[in-house]
Every structure is written in C-alpha cells, then in structure tokens.
Design a protein around this nucleic acid. Structure first.
Lengths: 311, 311
DNA sequence: TCATATTATGAGTTTTACTCATGTTGATGT
DNA sequence: ACATCAACATGAGTAAAACTCATAATATGA
C-alpha cells in the first residue's frame, strides 16, 4: 500500500506555533491529565489531546507517556515543562505590569440584581488585573421597554458604563452585548418534596414567584412551552427585583423563573435545582452601554475587554 | 446613532493569545517597520498590521506610534519588546535543546540535480537545527516513468529517504510531497542580445537546451502554450541531468526549461532571467519517499518535518 | 469482568490568520 | 504648492487552525 501526503503551506516559523500551545501544555503537565487541564482552560478534553499531539509532532518528540488512564511526563516533557513555566511566568508578569499602568476611574451603573453576585465576581477579577483603576458602583432602575428602542433610565454623565438588559438599541450610545438572556426554571429542592416531576404540568400546582417589574415573564415562558392557561391564580408572591425572587427561591418559597446568569452558581452547587429543563431564550441580551467618549477612556475600554473576555 | 457589538465566545486565556503574536511583534519592533517585519516572516504587510492592532486591543495599550511613514515604539511598546525578546530567546533555546536530543543517522538518496544547491541549503539548515543527526547523502537514478506507478530505482535498504520526482504512487512506501514541479523558461541575459522579446515565437529561433532523460519536456511545454511544430531542428545540445542544463544555461548556451525549484536562486540574483513568463505545471511533484519503518525513526521524521516546514 | 475514568479520533463548525487589492496619509523633492 | 513615493490601514474573501460533539478504544480497579 502506498501512502501519500500533500505539502503544507507556508506559515509563521515553528517557534510561533510552539508558543501558543505552551499554556495548554503547561496545564496538562501540571495536572498530569488532559481532562483536568481542559477543565481549567474551559475547553474540551479532545481539544487538549489534539493540541498536545500536534506539539509532539512539531517537535518530533514524545512529551507524555500514555498508558490508558495514566499520563506521565517523559524526560523531554519534564524538561519542556520546566522551561515552559519560566516563559509563561515571564509573559504573565509582563501582562500584569502593562495592565498595572492603566489607571483611572470607572463609574459603573448596574441593574440591582446583577450586583449581588455575578458583577462582584467580575469586579474582583477585574481589579486584580487592573490594580490601578478605581471602581465606583451605583444601581440604575430596572425599567424595561418592550418597544423597539431601549430606555436610558440612568444619567449618562454620572456613569461611564451601564450594565443593563435590552435589545441593543440605545440611540447615541455604543453598546456591547456580553450575555444572552435565558430564563431558567429553578426552585429549592425542598419545594418538590417527594413528588415525581415528569412534565411541566406537574409543576403548575406549585406556587410561582413573580417578578413585578416584568410581569409577562411567566406568560412568555408558558407560551414558548405551549402551556397557556394552566396557571392557578390563588395566592401570589411578587417582587420588584430578580435578586429578591432569587432570595425567595432559596428559601423554598416557590418556583422561580430567573435569568441563567443569576443562578448559574446556585445550580452548580445545588443550592437550587432545575426541576425540568424548560429554558427560554427571551431575545434580550445583557449589555454594557456607554458613550463613545467613555469607551475611549483606557480604564473603560479595559473593563469592556475584560468582560467580553471572561464571558 | 447607536452602535451594537455582539459577544465573543470563550477561548483560551488572554495570555495564550499574546504568546502567539510575540514573534510578530518582536519582528516589527526590531525593524521599526511592519513592511520589513512582514518580509522577514514571509507574510504580508497587512497581516502584520492586523495582528499588531489586535494585540494592542487585547492589551488596551498603544504599542506603536504611527505618524504616516514613521513608526516608533511607545513607552509601553518598548517595555513589551524587551520582555518579549527575553521570552522568545527562552523558547528558542529550549527548542534547540530539545532538538539537540534527537540523534541518529539519516541516509538520503537524491536526484543529482537537487544535490547541487537546493538540497545543500536544506541540509545546512537541518543540521543547524539538529546537530546530533549525521547525514549520508548519495544519488539515485533519475529514470522517470510516465505511467501510473512511479519506479523505485534505488535500494530502499541503503537509503532512509529518497528525494525524487513523481506522482506520489510508490507501492509499499510512504511519500510526502514537498513541492509541485513547475517548469520555467530561463536563459542568460546575454543570449537575448538586444532583441526585443514580445511573444513566445520570438524565442523559438534561439538554441534550446535539451534534457535527454525526459525528452518530452519541451513538447509538453509547447503544447501547454499552443506552440507545437515551431521548433527549428538544426544543432541540438542535450544533457543527462537538469544540473547540467542549468550550468549550460548559465554560460549562455541556450534557452532552458527547468524546474522552478532549481532556478529560484538564479532568478532572484539575476544570474538567469525569465525572458517571458511561460510557466508550466507538469502535474508531477517532488517527494520524500521512505518505508513506514524508516519514517518511524526520529531522525528521519525530523528531516521530513523540517522539509515540510521550510517549504 | 464489568463499570469507570481516561485518552484518541472522525466529522463538522467556528474563529482566527492570512492574502489581495485598494485606500489613506505624511514626508520628500521640484 | 503639488505630485510622487513609501509607508500603514482596511474591506472582502479564503484558507487553515482550533474547537466541539459524539464515539471508540483502553487500561484500572472493585
């Protein structure tokens, strides 16, 4: 059997290709596992496997010895991992040094619900990266328009960036979407008791927590799942902000319909459960909104880039 | 006017993106010119421009100050370039160290014509990269088959890799194409005298140098350019190998039809000229051919990778 | 020996990097 | 001043790399 291979096209020198794999290789070397490395990097196991393979081909060396489950660095791999660490450290330090030179003030306006957990996490990471930027956080109203234009219910002169939800149409402002709004059905485990939940109808007897400033949510959700007209209408519990709905749900007060962004962490650590997967993409997105002038300021641009990156 | 931007998808951390641009940035910083950096890297000016731009966006910094023609590093750029050099040096050294650990013998068989200049250049670069590999070079016959299967006119047991021309069909062997065969019309400047060459017909009065082991070359070329039947048939000069044809052409003995691979350098430094652009892709390619067992040897695989890379 | 946890791999998709062609701009010489 | 030149910038389209998803293959250990 003859086997033929075609020629490659010209690219940058081999060093460049090696450089970009270094973080992947380093993670794999540190964990001694492609799976865990992938988890750390937020990519799939297959991606790590492939990249390491191609690195080994580039170098013409075997970097890991694989025996089924067990992964171990070879002699060459060990050498590379040590040097790689040094090089990575160098570049990381450099990055921090450069970012440290960005200073200024960042005035953020945010929907109250974002400010409880999600935004705090972002701000934590951001201020670590940019220690010389001061942040000033205030809330803005959650008023919501279903129309074609999104409202500007904050004072653009007192805020550089507003974090809000909408359709991306703020005249005279420049907006960046960082997350699609997807509503998720959640509740506390205790609410379900020992009932077996098989269909959406099984859930409709449970108390629902209502978001009073966006009243249509349940109805839109029900429509998307072809369930209109099923809601019981006895006692109702309603709250102005999502964060209050969330707090109520955590207490087991009822079934909540909340944006995924706000409940990701609770789902991950099982504070809340998703009794049935009945999600609903609303068509809105979360946006950073600011004037063109604001976006030109380094501190503001840095925040935008950070958020887009970390999403 | 409102301006909206969509969210990015998750990728590797920012450091990884920075790493792969470093060689580009370094070249630009060293040359103080995107154009010259591009030339060094073998890519276009636009590619360099874009990558530097995206690096600047990633970092949220301006690295170069552009004033029309003049390009200069900013303060931040200078800082980055110094650190980048250190990091690059580290990785390059590392690469050499790893490659230095590959040792063994590489037995190459080659068409004689390749061994004059082109292959020597490759071997020079290869042995610099892999100082621990010994190379043993011999020639193999240039016999050529126009049929479906390519001949094996060398002893596979005495050679790891044969460099030859063909169609990629060597039964029981594994082959890698590294260059398409493209015939170019060349001659010494003096041959043209002061005649004005406007069409192919103008050239047909000049003496042609003939490659006796692949007699059809001129005819195939003529056919491709719809010129059959024009050749004068007085005195003829014919040579067994391309390298002899090339040597004759350099002396101004006649018009030669040679593979681009063999005359690239002569064209670049004007030892030879291409009186009219009348190239002809023959459909053959240059191949590295070896047994699967040979390709498994590190020294042999290293040579393959080097050649595919440098093409 | 079966369940499990891991890496490998085929197929298809998305994103990035590149080329080519053209636009723009500032310096230079007449 | 103005034309010219030599750089960088940029829009559009293409090629290649990187990633995902789904699934296969494989060693480990109860």
């Amino acid at each position: 059997m003859s086997k033929t291979h075609n020629m490659t096209r010209h690219r940058l020198s081999i060093t460049s290709q090696i450089l970009s794999v270094l973080p992947v290789f380093d993670a794999a070397a540190r964990h001694g596992s492609f799976t865990r490395a992938a988890r750390e990097l937020g990519i799939t196991q297959g991606a790590v496997s492939r990249r390491i393979q191609s690195l080994e081909e580039q170098l013409g060396l075997v970097l890991f010895s694989r025996q089924g489950k067990t992964l171990a660095l070879t002699q060459d791999g060990l050498l590379l991992s040590q040097k790689a660490k040094t090089a990575l450290k160098l570049v990381e330090d450099l990055e921090h040094e450069l970012k440290g030179s960005v200073s200024g003030q960042l005035r953020l306006g945010t929907l109250p619900s974002l400010a409880n957990r999600w935004l705090m996490e972002q701000i934590k990471g951001f201020t670590q990266d940019f220690p010389a930027i001061s942040v000033d956080l205030i809330t803005i109203p959650a008023d919501f328009s279903a129309g074609h234009k999104d409202p500007v219910n904050w004072d653009p002169s007192s805020v550089d960036v507003a974090l809000t939800v909408g359709r991306g149409s703020w005249p005279a402002l420049e907006s960046y979407a960082f997350c699609e709004e997807e509503m998720v059905l959640v509740c506390h485990q205790s609410l379900l008791g020992d009932a077996t939940i098989g269909t959406l109808e099984d859930l409709l007897g449970l108390p629902r927590l209502i978001h009073s400033t966006r009243l249509g949510s349940w109805e839109y959700w029900a429509e998307a799942h072809r369930l209109s007209g099923y809601f019981s209408s006895d006692r109702s519990l309603s709250f102005e902000h999502f964060f209050m709905v969330l707090a109520a749900a955590r207490q087991g007060l009822g079934l909540a319909l909340l944006p995924l962004l706000l409940v990701e962490q609770d789902l991950a650590n099982s504070t809340l459960v998703e009794p049935l997967k009945a999600r609903h993409v609303t068509g809105n997105s979360y946006y950073m909104v600011g004037s063109a002038a604001a976006w030109r300021r380094p501190a503001v641009a840095a925040f935008r880039d950070y958020l887009l990156q970390s999403t």
